[in-house]
Every structure is written in C-alpha cells, then in structure tokens.
Computed example of a mutant assay.
Amino acid sequence: MKKSITPVPLLYPNPVLLICTYSSDGRPDAMTAAWAGICCSKPPCISVGIQKSRQTWENIKDRGEFMVCIPPESLVKETDYFGIASGKNLNKFTETGLTPVTSDVIEAPYIEECPIAIACRARNLMPIGSHILIIGEILSILADEDACGEDGIPDMSLIRPLLYDSLKKTYYTIGEPSGKAFSSGMKFRRTVQEP
C-alpha cells in the first residue's frame, strides 16, 4: 500500500551539475544545481532551475551563456562546496583548487577536472516561484578522452557522475546497467515503431 506524501521537489534521480559563468567583472563562478535535465532534442536543450538570489542567475541574465559541467564522484566535496558557498564574495575556484578554463565557443568557463562540459546559450528564462527556469540550447560538448568508450562517445560508467536525493540530502553514484533502451521492452510490442 502506498502512503501520501506532502508535495515536495521529488524526482529520482536528480543529476548533479556545476553551472559555470563569468560575473560582470569577468570573474569565473560556478554553482551546484540538481533541478535540471534534457528538455528538447531538436534543438538539443538543457533546462535548469536556479534561485533568483544566486550569483549564477545574475551572471546568466547579464551574459546569456553558461557551461554545464558534469562532476565525477571523486569531486563530491568540491561539488558540495560549490552549492554551499556564494560567488558574490569569494572565488570558489581558489577555495577548492579546481581549474576554470575559458571556452572557445561561449563567454563562460568550464571546469577542467570535470569530464564533460556542455556549452549553452540561454533561449528562454521563465520565473516559476522560487526559481527561474532557464532553457539553454546546447552549442558544443567537450568530453575527456578517458571518459569516452571505444565507440568514442561519453560512457556513464567511466564518468561516474553524481546523483542527488533531495529528501535525504545525500549524493549517490550510478549503479550497474539494468537494460538497453529501445530494445529491453520490445517483447511487449507486436510491431516496431520509431519513438
């Protein structure tokens, strides 16, 4: 039997991302975000919810571009710190020792130690209560070679991304694959249709 739970921001799993921007004075900044995900295929877009009080929101509003970095489990302490500290009064990169790198594609830095960095340009900004929903069009993806499989594309088992449980306020890592998309469920279909 299921029990009723008061509505809260609950979805499993939440990705853990680092949203990187430049401030108006050109200082690199980043924040941890878990209210995010892919929201469109054509053009490829990421949605991310950011509180209005965050320096990152001010930076995106000012510059219109941001990098989405996927931190590996080995950066859990640094990633958590990027969500605790404010970039208004300190340089989080100096504090953690992580390396901001200027993008060749957009006006935003990425984090060298993160295996994946996704360059985005803000397409839509939508106020929703405590957060602004930002839709960013993916312009470019940078991937460490050792984060890619033999097929040359990023491999989640090599990246080891962090996941977040918002109710228990706990980080997790991925487990083992449990099925192949668009084929595991084919035994239930009489005819095959493209998704």
Rank of each mutant, 00 (worst) to 15 (best):
R123F: 00
C114L: 08
E145Y: 02
I128A: 10
I128L: 14
R123H: 02
D144H: 13
A143K: 00
C120W: 02
I116P: 12
L133W: 14
A119Y: 10
S140F: 15
S130H: 03
A119N: 06
M126G: 00
D144T: 01
L133F: 15
D144W: 04
L139A: 08
L139K: 12
I135F: 08
L133C: 09
C120K: 04
A143S: 13
S130G: 03
I138Q: 08
G129A: 14
A119S: 09
C120N: 00
A119W: 14
R121W: 01
M126A: 00
L133I: 15
L142R: 15
G129K: 14
I134V: 15
L142E: 10
H131D: 05
S140M: 05
I138R: 12
A143G: 11
A117W: 04
H131L: 05
P115V: 07
G129V: 15
E145M: 02
I135Q: 09
L142T: 11
G129F: 04
A117F: 02
I116C: 09
I128S: 10
E137M: 06
A143T: 14
I132V: 14
D146Q: 10
I141M: 10
G136Y: 11
I141G: 03
H131W: 04
L139D: 07
S130L: 09
P127K: 08
I135S: 06
S140D: 15
C120P: 03
A119G: 04
G136R: 09
S140Q: 05
L125T: 14
S130F: 05
I132T: 12
G136K: 10
I141W: 01
N124L: 09
E145S: 05
A119V: 10
G136H: 10
S130N: 15
A117V: 08
M126Q: 12
L125N: 04
C120A: 01
P115F: 07
A122M: 12
I132P: 00
R121G: 01
I138S: 06
I116E: 03
S130P: 10
I138F: 12
A117R: 15
I141K: 05
I134R: 07
I116S: 04
I135G: 01
I134D: 04
G129R: 11
S140H: 15
R123E: 14
I128E: 13
M126E: 09
I135R: 08
I141V: 15
R121K: 14
I118E: 08
A122W: 04
L142V: 06
E145G: 02
E145F: 00
I132Y: 08
D146H: 13
D146R: 10
R123M: 12
P127M: 07
P115N: 09
